[in-house]
Design a protein around this nucleic acid. Structure first.
Lengths: 244, 244
DNA sequence: GTGATGAATACCACTTCAATACCACCAACA
DNA sequence: TGTTGGTGGTATTGAAGTGGTATTCATCAC
């Protein structure tokens, strides 16, 4: 038996369901690095037998890890550790959170990551002078491998010195650098897709897109991130619950 | 037993009914933050047994909290703390509020107020059958006498029997009828203006408009209002503030 | 007396958790 | 190249716990 397996302990007397106890412990094991990326987890049957629960219970625990993007399943083959995507559960971006809630599989594809000079609007909103450098990130957001949004981020050089090292979550990366985004203002608007946006988002030219502009602030109160997301609205609704 | 449960004390000798005493104490506990938003309360049976009252008594106390919008019940699942007003993480500033903040003068102009039959989507989302009547309100929203939005509302007949009597704020009118909207779900999307929308909003045809769909709920938990607002985004945009 | 209210009981309907059994797919190997 | 053993996928079931409700009775105000 793998050392990790022998460490797992479930308690039926507890009020929290067995599958949640198991999910929680598996998340901790994965985040502790018990398995390499791409490595296979114990099969559902092995997991179930070694813990004296039914396969369904083990399976439901794994369901949660799939929803969190921690593991990937292949029918007939096995369950594998996913490339590091959302390995920290503390905060999910509203984008991925919403897609996961709706049962989709979110992913993203980088278009570019480079240094450059800020536009007038960027220097104004980020509070950096026009001759300072900024990091630019541009990527496609996908749900089940269909493009649902085009996203452009701009960060002051002092916040993100090297855009090339960002691999998955920008916010997680900023946290690991010690400068997390703690608050954000978001503008919502609508624009007609120009030729380039239409090509990237795979919609007809002049199609209406939802434009969300997000200005994120660091803990010290200074702006640290300006992100514009162009969303296809046939796949993605931004939902807000409010009270009055 | 939860610490909160052991603090609850009822006195049958008092003149105020048991269920009111309990409701009062639960309100205080919730407002003191004894439970997180979304967390499950003790079940009605647990509540009843630990206080030595019948389940009906505990249930009637919870009824009052539901009416206050503090908790939400799910048949077969449990009773949960509702998202709190002043603790809501996400807030979408209202139309008039935003315009006034920016120094504009908001006004509106009625296009129509009449009774009709609901569309399929309306009957689904409002929970009224297709052969019942609904009240329809349609108006232009203006800032400094310039059209900035076209707004269409649809309400069940039982909520608004006579659309003609609404003069200014729909929500204020509903409050005066004793059926205020206490919570709302809002979808944000983008659409291309068709010929009629373009004419009303005074923009070129196929111009991208921000489409906000708002489903308002009454205190009893039933939907009471469905409003779709088509906003011009060249004059202003809506802002969402979020903390993470 | 009579109706309204508070409180209790008993039963119903729904959801969740966990289990069993069986199906569909993949990959390695004879 | 087809067989076979192990993999994930899923339909169905049952028990336990949850809120929903009809009925009944005691009490009190009028």
């Amino acid at each position: 038996m793998q050392p990790t397996l022998s460490r797992l302990k479930l308690d039926a007397a507890q009020s929290t369901p067995l599958y949640r106890q198991l999910a929680q412990q598996l998340v901790e094991a994965i985040e502790a690095g018990d398995w390499e990326t791409g490595e296979a987890l114990p099969s559902e049957r092995v997991l179930a037998e070694s813990l004296n629960v039914s396969r369904i219970t083990a399976r439901k625990a794994l369901d949660r890890l799939v929803a969190l993007g921690l593991i990937q399943r292949t029918h007939g083959s096995g369950t594998f550790i996913a490339p590091r995507l959302n390995q920290s559960l503390t905060r999910l971006t509203s984008f991925t959170e919403l897609l996961v809630q709706r049962g989709h599989r979110p992913s993203s594809r980088w278009l570019s990551r480079q240094l450059g000079t800020p536009t007038v609007e960027e220097s104004l909103r980020l509070g950096v002078s026009a001759d300072h450098q900024v990091s630019r990130l541009k990527r496609l957001r996908l749900a089940d491998d269909v493009v649902v949004a085009v996203e452009e981020s701009c960060l002051p050089h002092r916040v993100l010195p090297d855009p090339e090292v960002v691999t998955h979550s920008l916010y997680r990366h900023l946290e690991s650098l010690g400068t997390p985004i703690v608050r954000a203002l978001q503008h919502v608007s609508a624009v007609n897709a120009d030729a380039e946006l239409a090509r990237l988002a795979q919609v007809p030219e002049s199609q209406a897109l939802l434009m969300m502009t997000r200005l994120g602030y660091l803990a010290d109160g200074r702006p640290g991130e300006l992100t514009v997301t162009y969303c296809r609205t046939d796949y993605y609704d931004f939902m807000v619950e409010l009270t009055q």
